[in-house]
Structure formats: C-alpha cells, structure tokens
Simulated assay, not measured.
Amino acid sequence: MRSKTIIKTDFQFPGQKSVYKGKVRDVYTLEDNRLLMIASDRLSAFDVVMPKGIPFKGQILNQIATKMMEKTADIVPNWLEATPDPNVAIGTNCEPFKVEMVIRGYLSGHAAREYKAGKRELCGVEMPEGMKENDKFPEPIITPATKAEMGDHDEDISREDIIAKNIVSKEDYLQLEDYTRKLFQRGSAIADQQNLILVDTKYEFGKTSEGNIVLIDEIHTPDSSRYFYKEGYEERQAKGEAQKQLSKEFVRQWLIGEGFQGLEGQEVPLMSDEYIETVSERYIELYENITGETFKKADISNIDARIEQNVLDYLESHK
C-alpha cells in the first residue's frame, strides 16, 4: 500500500541544481533563477519533526499560502510564480534574510510562556504589566527570531542586535518592519471577515538578484500563524477560559500533555493513526475557516507520481 502522505522527496527535475530540506518544505533550486518548493505532510512542533505525516497538510498549507500571497501582493511583491500541483509552488530564487519577522497582536504561545515565567521584555520590546494570557496588546509587537537550521531552535533576537550584528542592514530591517505591520493589518482584516482573530504570525523575506525585497515562504497559514475564533473571545477572556484556536497549538498542547516539549532527552510520543486522522480533520477545518471555501482533497493514491508529472508538464510549457 502506498503512503497517503508525502514525508520525504527525492526528485530529479530538469535543470535541478540543489535541494534544501527544511522542517516542512523541500526546496529545489532550478536553473533560470527559479525555486520549486514542495510542501510536505511533515508536522513540526517545538522545532522537532514528528515521525508520521498528516494527510493533506502540505496541500492545505500550500493553497492557503498561495491565496494569501495573492491577497497581499499590493503591499509587498512576493516570490510566487505558479502552483502547478496542490503541494508545489514555483517562483523566483531569492537570498533569504536570516531573520523571521514574528508579529504578535495578543499575549499567546511563546510570549505568554515567557510572561508567565516573569519576563516583561521580549526581543527588546516591553510587554505591559497586568496582562492575562490571550489578552490583546495595546499595539502589535514585533519579536524577531533568527532562522535555525533543521533540528535547531529558532532564537529570539532584538531589533538592536539584528542591526548591530549586521544580520540585516538598518535600512532593510526598517523596511521589513514596515512590511510586517502592513501585512499583519491586512491578515487581521482578512481573518475578521471570516469571524477569526489573527493572533500572531511570522513572515519571511528575501532579496532578488536585482536587490528588491520580496515576501517568501508561507503566509497566514495555520503553521505560521495562530488564529482564535472571534465569537466568544471576550466571554472566554472574562471567565479566564482557554480560547478556541485555529492553529497547530492543539498539537503542541497534546505533546505537552504527553510530557514532550522538544527538550533534550525527551522522546516524541507515538501518534496513533486515529489521532493523526483527527489532526488531518483539524487542518481541513482550518483551511475552510481561514479561506471561507470548501476544501477539495487532491488525489493521494500516488502523491510522488502526481507531483512529478504536474511539475514536468509545467516546466515543459514554461521553458
């Protein structure tokens, strides 16, 4: 029986120069200054890749990212050229900035854990006293992280350190901050139309060979973002109840409950097929809630062959 998920890829496309395998995406560098990005069904939590894949996850991430790129192209140009397959995106090869631009509208996730530990500053940005988990910040805060290689943890870093260490030039970094705020504003408005709250997210940027800054990777997906349901948010906050979330935080919470937080010496708990099925269903729910569209499952009877054929057809017609 063929696997119904794509966990690893080993393609040889025409004009292929190199392959980089990230936590979730495999990136193939092609000739003609193009990149081909395959969204796998791998699931990463606490910077650890889980042993089993989640059916349709890659398709969901790729298709949400594509829709969101289209809806934000007027704010900042992006790398995307086409999506010849449900799991594949092709676009311009860029030099990535070595920081992820994380922006938070609410005290949730990593920020809430740091706050609970008594910290009132994150990445050089002050967090007000007297906040409860999932409270809204007076203004969204930008808390960048350095990009980690696969298996390493991303690390918080301040604007001052990024500029002082010349990780990004001051001029470019200020532009990244400006784009980040505008993208978050747009993402929040899109979420609001779907009765959702965009809680926090991250953006990645690169520079083209012409020196232009473009948006790369994914945007406003449940892997890169946290969403709350808007309905009932205020009531849950007032009662001190947990918020109803649309993100992979539910996986993180399950892992924490099983005694795993990605720390040294901890073993990844076994995910049963039944649990994986529920995770897949949650991702489909995320897709439909975020986009407002019914999810159409791609043919997963032979994912590798499907991807290869779709990519070859596209490359042949776009020589």
Results as ranks from 00 to 15, higher is better:
M1E: 15
R2S: 14
K4H: 14
K4I: 05
T5K: 07
I7C: 09
K8C: 12
K8T: 15
T9S: 07
D10W: 02
F13P: 02
F13R: 00
P14T: 00
P14Q: 01
G15V: 00
G15K: 00
K23L: 11
R25Y: 09
V27N: 00
E31A: 07
E31C: 04
E31F: 01
L35T: 11
M37N: 08
F46I: 10
V48M: 13
V49L: 09
K52G: 04
F56Y: 15
G58W: 09
G58T: 00
N62I: 04
N62M: 04
Q63R: 10
A65E: 08
K67W: 04
K71V: 04
D74A: 09
I75A: 01
V76C: 14
L80R: 10
A82T: 09
T83F: 07
P84N: 01
P86A: 02
V88Y: 00
C94Y: 05
F97Q: 03
K98C: 11
K98Y: 07
K98H: 11
V99P: 06
V99W: 06
V102I: 13
Y106K: 06
Y106H: 13
L107V: 03
S108K: 01
G109I: 02
A111K: 02
R113S: 14
G118F: 06
L122M: 15
L122R: 05
C123N: 10
E126Q: 14
E126I: 00
P128Y: 03
E129Q: 14
E129V: 03
M131L: 14
E133D: 07
K136I: 06
A145D: 12
E149K: 10
D152Y: 08
S158L: 11
I162M: 12
K170R: 15
E171R: 10
E171C: 10
Y173E: 09
L174D: 14
Q175P: 03
E177I: 07
D178S: 12
Y179K: 05
L183G: 01
S188P: 03
I190M: 11
A191T: 07
D192L: 10
D192A: 13
Q193W: 08
T201M: 05
Y203W: 12
E204P: 15
E204Q: 13
N212A: 14
N212H: 14
I213C: 08
I219M: 08
H220A: 01
T221S: 15
S224Y: 08
R226K: 09
R226V: 05
K230E: 11
G232W: 11
E235N: 09
E235W: 09
A238E: 12
A238P: 08
K239G: 07
E241R: 06
Q243Y: 05
Q243D: 07
Q245F: 12
S247T: 05
V251K: 12
R252Q: 08
W254I: 04
L255C: 05
G257S: 15
G262E: 08
L263N: 15
E264Q: 13
Q266S: 07
V268G: 11
M271P: 03
E274H: 05
Y275V: 08
Y283D: 09
Y283N: 06
E285R: 09
E285A: 02
L286K: 01
G292F: 05
F295E: 01
K296H: 11
I300A: 06
S301M: 07
I303E: 13
A305N: 13
R306L: 13
I307C: 04
I307K: 04
E308F: 01
E308Y: 09
Q309T: 07
D313S: 01
L315K: 02
H318A: 03
